[in-house]
Each structure stands twice: as structure tokens, then as C-alpha cells.
Nucleic acid binder design. Sequence first.
DNA 1: GCTTGATCGATACAGTGTATCGATGTTGGC
DNA 2: GCCAACATCGATACACTGTATCGATCAAGC
Lengths: 229, 229
Amino acid sequence: MLVWERPEPPDRPVPAPLSRERIVRAAIRLADADTLEAVSLRKVAAALDAGPMRLYGYIATKDELFDLMVDAVHAEIRPSGDGWRQVLISLADTTRQAAHRHEWFADLIGGRPQLGPHALARMDAVTAALGGVDLGTAVPAIAAVDAYVVGVVRREITERRAERATGMDKRQWQLTYGPYLQRTFATGRYPALATAVRDGPHLDADQTFQAGLDFLLDGIEARIARLSP
Amino acid sequence: MLVWERPEPPDRPVPAPLSRERIVRAAIRLADADTLEAVSLRKVAAALDAGPMRLYGYIATKDELFDLMVDAVHAEIRPSGDGWRQVLISLADTTRQAAHRHEWFADLIGGRPQLGPHALARMDAVTAALGGVDLGTAVPAIAAVDAYVVGVVRREITERRAERATGMDKRQWQLTYGPYLQRTFATGRYPALATAVRDGPHLDADQTFQAGLDFLLDGIEARIARLSP
DNA sequence: GCTTGATCGATACAGTGTATCGATGTTGGC
DNA sequence: GCCAACATCGATACACTGTATCGATCAAGC
């Protein structure tokens, strides 16, 4: 064959160079589209036209990939506002919104040390914004809001999945879990809970989130007021 | 061979009858001794002298086994006390203690709907104990405390594991993560966080937990006082 | 006593994370 | 310019996972 007739190089001549960022983005795409369990090193590698072992040049282990995914989400969390109260509200809100955008975030949050650059940057921003508050209050206050958000986000995502697993809306969910709950409530074993469910407030997710956050912030406010009258 | 010389039946003549409870106990033993990841259906079955598929007569799926494990832990959580504040403190404390006894609990808590009999019984007991509080406040208050505890417990167990992974005590941990943190702090990228770590309060786990819980309870108390002056 | 039916668990399958190590490409020495 | 030594990379392999399948096994009914 004549050299000048050499066929075109294949469509993907040189495999696109990999990077931690590309790997993390591919993993997040997989997790967003499905579940965290859908993220396997093989699938991530396949999405990048690479063999599984290729990834190990960039990440040491699958857990490290998860850590990087979590830190990437922290980059999306940018609390802002005037005054400590608004900043903490914003911290809670933006974290919650990020978890709603990336449901798998709820599975990882709080489960690994958060020492990535973006997580630290977010903590730094919040700490700076609370500059007016004495550190003895600010530090536990931030920790408390963080913990509360972790718990709320997990519960919310869990409930959302349960609803989605049975049908699509809340009506369907009640139809599926209803019989079981009806039966167990009918035993009369949980009388207080039954009346609370029947007569108590029927708050939606946003309202419940706000109510708990208000408790927390009111408690913090009381302490601040106590210290600087 | 003569029939009356028939050898003794094997040491385990009849395989011990299985039950959900025995299976769950075996799984919890495995998880307590190691990690949740150490719980595989094969190992659980082996601990009960059974083949893996034998378990499927009692549980439908591995997730269901996890749900049962979580509910078994809920049976250990028995909040008590006089007055709504003490009951909520007890709810938080006993939940936290259960998580410290079963570290894997932190991996599952909040991650699945908690509709098992013991979880419902615990919720019923708490709801009943808050009988004196108007339902519009009691329901979100319980939810908030629950969420807060979930977040705290996850953070605590995560930190404990990180410490244990590097050595055995906090000194070792600082020696290992120290250089990385020192380097990142030395960049000056997180000035507010750096001063907070340097000058802020050095609370231990118990104190941080108490501080956040106090914020929450003070906020709840304020609302109760506002409603019934 | 034989057939039929149900039950149970050994085998098999598709998938996982990652250790190993030979093929490959690159560089240094002469 | 050529070859050898070295480093790098990723295909193969391994041990393990949850669980579907379905043939062997045992009990019931006539």
C-alpha cells in the first residue's frame, strides 16, 4: 500500500488525557443519573473510553473518588448573607439544595472527613462571615447547623426515594405503605403516635426544615444575647 | 458394616433452626466486630452453619437485613425522663450511646425509612412523653432533635474512625493529618478557619454535642413559652 | 408403594474493587 | 544510529459480592 494512501487515523486517535477532574465529573454524572451504587470504576472508566486500571493513576481507591465527588459538591455550596443568622440560614439552605440536586450526596455526607479544599473553603467563608460572633459560640453554632442539615437531608432524600419507589407521588406512597401502617396502627400499640399523625400538623418538607432550623437559630440567638446584652 | 455399629450422628445432627432474629443477631455480631462492609450474606450464613441461599427464606434482600439490624438497635434506645426537655435530652443521649455501641449504626441511620416495630415504639414513647406540649410544636421538635442526632452521630463516628485508622489516639491522628493540614493552612487560603482552629474553643465530643443540643432545646423552649405565657 | 407436589439449597452468573506483571513505549549510553 | 535498561501502563486474573435458577430431595396423598 502506498504511504500517501494511508487511511485516516481512527476516530479517537489519541485517547483523551485523563485527569482527576474528568474522572470525578464522569462519576458524578453516573451518580446523578442513577445512584451511588451505579458508580463502579469500570463504568466510570468506560465513560472515559479507558480501562478500569487506568483510573488508578489518578485515584488511589474508590473511597477517594467518593471523597473527591463530595468535595466537588461542596464547591457548589456558597453561603452568603448579612449577619450571622442569614449566613447560617444560607449555609443550611444551599447545602440542602445541593443535596437535592445530587441525591447521592445524602449517602456520603457526614460519612467521611471533609478536608477537601472546597469543603475547607466553605467552612472558612462561614467562619469569616460569623466574625462578629464570639468564637466560643460561633464554632459550636456552625457545628450544630451542619449536623442538623446532615440529618434533615438524609431523612428528606430517604423519604423521596421511598415515595418514588412505589409510584410517583405522595398519594401512591400512602397507597402502598398505607395498608401496612394502617394495620400496625390498628393494633393500638402506638396510640400516642397515631393521634400525633392524625391530629398533628401536616408540614411539608420545607416547613419542617424551617421549623427545626428556627429552633436552632433561636437558641443560638439567645446565647448571643446572653453574652452581649 | 453391622447396623448396630452405626457411627454416632455428626456433632450437629440437625441444623439449628433459623429465624429472622438469629440471622439479625449474627449480622450484628459481625458488624460490631468489624464493619458494615464485613457483613456479607455468605458470612452471616456461615456463622449459622448454613448456605447463603438459606437466608432468603427469612429475608427478602440484604437491604431488608440492614433494616432489621437498625430496628434491633432501636430496641436498645429507651428514652425516659420527666418533662419534655429531659425526654428529648434522653432521646438524643440514648440514641448517641447506641451508635457508640454499634458504630455501623451511623452508616445506616437516616438512610432508610424507619418503620420497624421498635422504631415506631420509640417514637410512640417520645410522643407520649411530650403529651403536655402542643402537637404543633412537639412534632417538629422531635423531628429536629432526631435530625440533629443523626448528623452528630455521623460526624463523631467518622472522626473516631479517622483517628483509629492512623494510630490509636488523638496525638497520632494529628501527627498523620497534621502535615497535610499544616501545609494547607500555611497557604493562607483559609485565614478565618485557621484562627478559629487556633483561638476557638477546643471542645471534646461530649461538649460539642451538648452545646448544639442546648441551642436546639432553648429554641424549642422559647417557642413553648411564647405559646403558653 | 408409587406418584406428585412442594421445598430447599448447591450451583451458576454477572458484577465488584483492585493486585499482579508482562507488553509497551521511552530514555540514556555508547 | 542502535541497542539496552528502565519506567509506565493497562489487560488479565483473583477473590468476593448479591441473588436467580432449577435439579435434588423429601413429604403428602391415593
